[in-house]
Amino acid sequence: MADAAEGLELRLGAAAPIPLDLALGCAPGELLALVGPSGAGKSTALRCVAGLHRPTSGLVRCGGKTWFDAAARCDLPPHRRAVGLVFQDYALFPHMTALGNVAAALGHRPRAARAERARELLALVHLSGLEDRRPAELSGGQQQRVAVARALARDPAVLLLDEPFSAVDRATRRRLQSELAGLRRSLSIPILLVTHDLDEAVALADRMCLMHRGRGLQTATPSEMLARPASAEVARLLDLRNLFRATVERHDAAAGTTFLRWGDAVLEAAHAPAFVPGAAVDWMVPPSAVVLHRRGRPSLGERENPVPARVLDLLPMGRDAEVTLDIADAQGGKLAFSLPLHAARRNGLAPGEACTVSLLKENIHIMPLSRTGR
């Protein structure tokens, strides 16, 4: 692999035909996932790195070398950028064998050394013994491995993966994801993964960048983004539930508490001094932080942010139950959580039944008020 002394630095701007407003960095050995809805600009960002799309403004630097700088009128063509790119459809040459496809990307090496190096790369992706098969004789997962080996054959300074697992079945996708997780440990280059599958990004990425309409809304570790989205817009794009609005009432720094006025209730949340008293805010609580009060068996822990509710829906999902509650939110928001099905039945949960839940203080996350509609 290339000795990438520095990682990837990316700043992209454009108004049309595809809007872009994105700035991110990816360190050597790091896997950064670009996530977001279709049309968010994820693949366009990858194409800008590869030199297949030219933004209006910005900068692309990798391994200490400038590939694109709009201000300096620098724009290296794709063949002069040390990029390994795996397309969604793999784009293998149908008339060539697996060995031939990989060897075709080794033009920068002496001819006599190409076949041996191609075999090494196919072995790296677990395809030893299949060197003489053509793409039509390989499964979808095997074709994907050939595409990865061919991308690595260029000795790239960055590896770009554009929805690489979308064309295979679920079982094969899981296996390939596991193989990529193992393969990346031997790579000391930045890796950009474009995916619409949030579970895939969470499983593979060191960090995620959430994109929407060409903008990078938040870049963080998967756990941080899911627990502490930067805004309600980010939370909605991630399909996070239990989003509400409230007003900051006061802070108690000594107790590590911020008090929120939510309708007629006052909730305790983790201390968030950046929000001034009187400010309207968005807030969320993850389903895992919603605790059902046990019927007839109250505990001291249930004093924490108790909320009366009525069951709107209870959906059995194997051993668990997905519960939706009406909590009389002024904006019509509902509260959702899950619990073991036997616990739901033991506590008499059913549509129309009253219950009480607690919202765990430390898991209530406060965000600036979103200007977009609910």
Rank of each mutant, 00 (worst) to 15 (best):
G182R: 14
A254P: 07
H196N: 02
A254I: 01
A171V: 06
N242H: 13
R236D: 05
A269S: 10
P229Q: 01
M208E: 02
A227I: 00
R215V: 00
E249C: 06
L192S: 07
G216H: 07
G182K: 09
P273T: 06
H271D: 05
D252S: 01
V194D: 11
L217K: 12
A201E: 03
H271K: 04
G278P: 06
L267V: 11
T258P: 08
P273G: 11
S186A: 14
R245A: 02
R175K: 10
L237D: 02
L240E: 04
L240H: 03
V248M: 12
A280T: 06
A280R: 15
A254R: 15
M284A: 11
M211Q: 12
M284S: 13
G216F: 11
M211W: 03
H196F: 04
A254N: 14
L243C: 04
A274M: 11
E233C: 03
E249T: 00
A272T: 10
I191V: 15
Q218G: 14
A254D: 13
A246L: 08
R213M: 00
L267Y: 12
E268P: 01
L243M: 04
E224D: 15
A205N: 08
L204T: 07
M284V: 01
S231Y: 06
A232N: 05
L267N: 10
H271S: 13
H212Q: 08
T221G: 15
R250G: 05
Q218A: 08
M225T: 00
P190H: 10
M284D: 01
I191S: 09
D264R: 10
D169H: 13
T247Q: 12
R250N: 11
L260F: 14
Q218T: 02
A201K: 04
H251I: 01
F275E: 00
D264T: 00
H251D: 05
T219S: 02
A280N: 12
P190Y: 06
G256Y: 09
L198R: 15
E224F: 03
V234N: 05
H212R: 13
V276W: 09
R236Q: 13
M284I: 01
D264L: 00
L226P: 14
S178E: 12
G214L: 02
V168Q: 10
D197T: 01
A230W: 12
G216Q: 05
R250C: 10
D282R: 06
A265T: 08
F259I: 03
A280C: 13
D252W: 05
P277V: 07
E224R: 15
L238E: 09
F244V: 01
A203G: 05
L198S: 02
E233N: 04
H212T: 00
L237H: 09
A254M: 07
D282Q: 11
T258Y: 05
E179H: 10
H196E: 02
L217S: 14
L176H: 11
D169M: 03
A255V: 10
A205D: 07
A203I: 08
E179C: 02
A181K: 15
A181W: 03
L217N: 15
R184G: 06
R228K: 14
V281T: 10
R170K: 15
S223M: 09
V194E: 08
P222C: 00
A280I: 00
L240V: 01
L210W: 08
V194A: 11
L176K: 05
S223T: 06
